[in-house]
C-alpha cells in the first residue's frame, strides 16, 4: 500500500497527459494521436526494456543496444521478404504467422549476437563505466558497418502484411490496424516480463540482483550466469522492438538503431534505471507526448522528449518508478 501511495502520481502521469490533451483538439484527432502514441510507446518499451534490465542488474551502460534493434529490423526485412506470399496474402492468420516468424527469428538473431557481445566484450568491462561507454559506442559503430556489409548500403523495404495495412474508423478517427498489433504485443511482453519477474525463481533472483548483486552471490547463486541470461533476453527484446519498428516504418536503414538509441535512453532514464514498470510508464509517456507535441507544435517536436525528461527528473530525480537501493 505504501508503495502504491508513492507510485500512483507517476502511474497517473501518462493518463493525465492524455486527458490534458483532449480539450485542445477534436475527439477524432485525439483518438488517432492517442492510438499512435500508445503504439509508439509499446514499441519503445520493447526496445528499452532490455536496456533497463541490463543496466539494473549488471550495471552495464550498453550504448550498443541500438545495434540489436537494427539487427532485428534487418532480420524482419529478410524474413518478410522470404515469406512474401504470406505477407501478401489477404489472410489475417498467414499475415500474423509471417510477423510471428519475423519476431522469433529477430529475437533469436539478436539474442545470439547479444551472447557473443557479452562473452566477447561486455564481461571484460564489468564495473568500469567509462570503458563500457567507449567499448559499446565502438561496438555500435562496428555492428552498423557489419550490417551494411551483410545487407548493403541501400535502405531495405519491409513488407507490411496486407490485412494489417490501412486503418479502421473509431468514433470518426482513423486508427492504423498495425498499431493495435504493436500495442497488443507490447502489453503481452510487459505482462510476460511482470509474470517472470514476480512469479518465478529466476525473476526473484533478477529482482534481488538488481538491488544487491554481492548479496545474491553470498547466498550461493552464480550471478554471472544470470547476467548472461539477462543480457541475451535484453538484446532479444531489442530485436523484437526492431521488427515492430521496421514493419511500422516499412523501410530499414543501418542507422535505425542509432536513431532510436536516444529515445530509448530517454525512456529508461524517465522510468528509473533498472525499473521495468518505470520503463513501461516512461515509454507510454514519451509515445504520447511525441505525438501530441508533433501535432500541436511541430517545431517543438525535436526537443520535446529532452524537455519531458528534464521535467520528470526535476520532479522525480531518480525517475518515475525508481528501484529502492
Amino acid at each position: 500500500m505504501r508503495r502504491l501511495r508513492q507510485d500512483w502520481p507517476a502511474l497517473a502521469l501518462a493518463p493525465a497527459v492524455a486527458l490534458l490533451a483532449l480539450p485542445v483538439m477534436d475527439l477524432p484527432t485525439w483518438i488517432a494521436l492517442t492510438a499512435a502514441g500508445a503504439a509508439m510507446g509499446m514499441m519503445l518499451f520493447l526496445m528499452a526494456a532490455g536496456l533497463t534490465l541490463i543496466f539494473g542488474l549488471m550495471d552495464v551502460l550498453n550504448f550498443a543496444h541500438g545495434a540489436f534493434i537494427t539487427l532485428g529490423a534487418y532480420v524482419a526485412a529478410s524474413v518478410m521478404g522470404a515469406l512474401a506470399s504470406w505477407v501478401g496474402a489477404d489472410d489475417l492468420a498467414r499475415n500474423l504467422a509471417a510477423l510471428a516468424v519475423a519476431v522469433l527469428a529477430a529475437a533469436a538473431a539478436a539474442g545470439a549476437a547479444g551472447l557473443v557481445f557479452e562473452r566477447g566484450i561486455i564481461r571484460r568491462v564489468y564495473g568500469a563505466h567509462l570503458q563500457q561507454i567507449l567499448i559499446t559506442v565502438g561496438g555500435m559503430i562496428v555492428a552498423e558497418q557489419l550490417i551494411l556489409a551483410a545487407w548493403g548500403a541501400q535502405p531495405v523495404q519491409v513488407g507490411k502484411p496486407v490485412t494489417l495495412r490501412g486503418s479502421f474508423v473509431l468514433a470518426g478517427a482513423a486508427v492504423e490496424k498495425y498499431r493495435l498489433v504493436a500495442v497488443a504485443l507490447g502489453l503481452l511482453v510487459f505482462a510476460a516480463m511482470q509474470l517472470t519477474l514476480n512469479r518465478t525463481r529466476i525473476g526473484l533472483l533478477v529482482r534481488a540482483g538488481v538491488e544487491n548483486r554481492e548479496m545474491v552471490e553470498a547466498l550461493g547463486y552464480r550471478i554471472r550466469r544470470l547476467f548472461i541470461g539477462v543480457f541475451v533476453a535484453g538484446t532479444a527484446l531489442a530485436g523484437i522492438g526492431g521488427v515492430m519498428w521496421a514493419v511500422y516504418q516499412e523501410l530499414v536503414t543501418a542507422a535505425v538503431g542509432a536513431d532510436m538509441t536516444i529515445l530509448v535512453f530517454i525512456v529508461v532514464i524517465i522510468g528509473g534505471l533498472g525499473s521495468v514498470g518505470g520503463c513501461f510508464a516512461g515509454a507510454v509517456l514519451v509515445g504520447l507526448t511525441t505525438n501530441y507535441i508533433g501535432f500541436l507544435a511541430p517545431k517543438l517536436a525535436l526537443g520535446s522528449n529532452i524537455a519531458l525528461m528534464v521535467l520528470v527528473l526535476l520532479w522525480r530525480p531518480r525517475g518515475l518508478l525508481p528501484l529502492a537501493r
Binding site: L204, R207, E211, N212, L323
Partner: peptide
C-alpha cells in the same frame, strides 16, 4: 545487512 528492500520478507 544486505536486505533486498523491494522483496518481501518471505521472498
Amino acid at each position: 545487512m544486505g536486505i533486498f528492500g523491494q522483496l518481501t520478507v518471505r521472498e
